[in-house]
Design a protein around this nucleic acid. Structure first.
Lengths: 138, 138
DNA sequence: CAATAAATGCACTTCCATTGCACCTATTTT
DNA sequence: AAAATAGGTGCAATGGAAGTGCATTTATTG
């Protein structure tokens, strides 16, 4: 297994202390996080740095952006089963209306969606909202 | 066929000149519009009025809100085949990456989505992004 | 007509996203 | 190793959209 440093380098991302910390933070999180979440976790760092770091991660495809309908952009590490570069490999996200957390359901692929003639589908965003497993108590 | 006045009244919405204009504006649009779009169409009116009018329409279920991933909330009239009160009757939206317009595909229903055990699905937001019929030239 | 309720307009606030610029740090070149 | 260069970080400021409080106008009801 490669170290986190090697992983970043393999994606053409220069390794800095800050980036490693942010990467580790994202890695330990099981849910998608907002910029504010990251900001609260690293109060010493500047908001801009965090913002640009996440943008860099996104460009290098180790993080994907999630629009769960809360109006606030969330981010999550791309994991096994989440090949964000490959368009046909889209997974769906679940947003809990109770705890307000959003999780990636990487094992749940988005079904084939038919669009009318003349429309060309390039990307699909599917967010299911409801109550998550922790909140439903099941 | 009932007049627009009657339609609003039937939904418990007081008819005012402004509301009629906004309703007609939405009705003639074939795409979902942002608040700014409405604002530009009615420069004489105040943003707040437009904002609250749309909110009222939304509450009374003659308009539905669309989150197409652009970060800006869009609105569209509920039409035949769009029963927004009924959760199981969700249609999908198509967002064109070229012209930036979003249309309701009311005839295309969202397929059944399976979620893991413990998760309770209450609502589904499905946005397909790509090139629309006008832009694809087909 | 008076009383009441709702609609509208103005001003202001908040929050998130984004950018410009200066400074610092690391890497590369000579 | 020093200089040059590129990239990273921090501060300040901006912009856009969403939302709220309050005063005023307009419509409805008794």
């Amino acid at each position: 297994m490669q170290t986190k440093e090697q992983l970043l380098e393999s994606k053409d991302i220069r390794v800095t202390a800050m980036r490693l910390l942010i990467y580790k933070f994202l890695a330990q999180k099981q849910v998608a996080v907002t910029l504010s979440d990251i900001e609260n976790a690293f109060e010493k760092a500047d908001r801009t740095t965090l913002y640009r770091t996440v943008k860099t991660f996104e460009e290098k495809a180790i993080v994907h952006q999630i629009d769960d309908g809360t109006g606030i952009t969330k981010y999550a590490l791309c994991e096994k089963g989440c090949n964000c570069e490959i368009e046909t490999d889209l997974h769906l996200h679940f947003h809990c209306n109770n705890c307000n957390e959003t999780v990636c359901l990487t094992e749940h692929k988005i079904p084939q969606i038919k669009v009318p003639n003349g429309f060309i589908s390039e990307d699909i965003n599917l967010v299911v909202k409801g109550i998550c497993d922790k909140c439903s108590g099941q």
